[in-house]
Amino acid sequence: MENKLIISPSPHIHGGDSIQRNMYGVLLALVPAFAVSVYYFGMGALVVTAVSVASCVLAEYLIQRFLLKREPSIGDGSAILTGVLLAFNLPSNLPAWIIVIGALAAIGIGKMSFGGLGNNIFNPALVGRVFLLISFPAQMTTWPLPGKLPMEYTDSITGATTLSLLNEGGGSLPSVVDMLLGNMGGSLGEVSAAALLLGFVYLLARKIITWHIPVAVIATAFAMTGVMYLADPLSYADPVVHLLSGGLLLGAIFMATDYVTSPMSSSGMIVYGVGIGLLTSVIRLFGSYPEGVSFAILIMNALTPLINTYFKPKHFGGK
């Protein structure tokens, strides 16, 4: 290397943070939830996650390499993360070819069509998930019941989720302990509240995300469902059940906090989180779909640019 003095504007040091550190950090935070899903859904969880991650990474690589003719950037970990999050939102017995379609939708439509990481408006994993939910409603809403390390992939016994029980009425709800641990039907990554909260603590500790969005989402959903429960406990479920069931925690902690598609200021994050909490509750309580987290996040994703315009960071010295 040439031996000349290097000149650059200040600052001359960097904190060492990187996109990779954050992406792999989130992946690490998802490990407990993954472990629980493997425990309850066995082979199915492994296959679905592997297929989803592999097809997301491959889709990103191929699109960057051959369509956009750019240097592929799969090393930054964002495609892996999209793959894992997509898988976590799928039932563990979903046929592989459907997963591949979902991954293509997530990366192709959700991410690359906007110009890649940083430019997408919607959370790619959720784009993939909703794409599949609308295209394959039957397969997407048939959940296998949790067993203990089951080895079969597609032929497991299926049953309803907590939320579909609530939506249609009837059936007995799982206990709070089961919901915490994840011993209930549902998408493979969303079942264990305890594992997801563990991941949340890790993300906060490593300063990968701030508390604003998850806390706003959870608090709003809790308050809204709580008010309805107090008004009419016979028709509406306990807010604790709402909190621990379905994709609320997974969505609040890992999907709503996606950097690219969430607002930048603290106040904006709170508004965004409250919006997700409200929309989720409305869809769950009054809508025909049992679950509304995905739609709520996507709707708020669309509003993020607007939130960014109106909710600026708190300016030093005020106005």
Binding site: S8, H14, D17, S18, I19, N22, S73, D76, S78, G116, L117, G118, N119, T210, Y259, V260, T261, S262, P263, M264, S265, S266, K312, P313, K314, H315, F316
Partner: peptide
């Protein structure tokens, strides 16, 4: 310096800015 990548809108700069700017 390390090569610059595209912005992922993580808002860490917003959190770091002592003047409350974006």
């Amino acid at each position: 310096r390390k090569p610059a990548r595209s912005c992922i809108r993580c808002a860490k700069c917003v959190q770091a800015c002592p003047m409350g700017l974006n």
